[in-house]
Amino acid sequence: MRFFRSHAALLFLLPALAGILIFIIYPIAYSFHISFFDWDMISGKKTFVGFGRYEHLLGDPKFIQVIVNTVVYMFSMVAVTVALALFLAAWLNKSSLVHNLAQTAIFTPHIVSTISVVLLWMWVMNPDIGLLNYVMEKMGVDRLLALFGIKKMMWLESRTTALFSFIVIGVWKTLGYNTLVLLAGMQSIPGQIYEGAALDKASSLRKFYKITVPLLSPSLFFLLIVNVTSSFQTFESVNVISKGGPLNSTNMMVHWIYQTGFEFYRISDSSVGSVLLLLIIGLATYSNFRLLSNKVHYQ
């Protein structure tokens, strides 16, 4: 009984700790382990190769392209989404019927499941019968594109535009959530600070980036972390729409890991990918915190 009382905290935590240990820590450690072997699960042969698979994959241009795709996607998504959300939130920071309707409309994509969103966009972006090309044609945008030498926008079907199309879909899905977070942040900035700034002769633009943005920094930082980590997890869209194509241009880490391990039966390479992904995300998060956390102002 005494043991229980003096170790109560630990004992209460034990179930959760056990869960974390078994389902998170152990698999991660085991992945590390597998990545140093060449393991054929079907025949059962397991040979130790040290960094062999690492060397092989890091020398494979297709694998490097997957990493590049993922990083490019991540940067674009985060930059575009947060920037757009910032301007949208500034615009929506008033109350009127139009603005309230707009807020609802913008947030709706966040509620819809990713698969539905993805399937929908697949059809919208169809070069022949999709809504996007139809509207662009009606608005004459296609003639504008022709000036750049683009005959027809192939969206998801061409290796030059496929990743861009994914970014569009991703931004569309996450814009609402980001906007709302920033909107809430903006509304918690006391109005009198802006009045003080007005008296300090600050123009609207200066008010925006000297006051609004810095005071929004906790929200911005939060969105940065959340967007970065979630963009690294992109899987459904790739799996349902393109399976990494065309020509590997939309293949992203999580999809590559899944496909290599479970469709191509190369579990060792898959583990190498997992380990590298862990390192990349860890590095990204660490640098975010190190570089930016002292720029974040908490009130």
Partner: peptide, 9 residues
């Protein structure tokens, strides 16, 4: 101002 309204950041 009553609440000072100085820039916290």
């Amino acid at each position: 101002f009553q609440n000072y309204a100085i820039y916290p950041h």
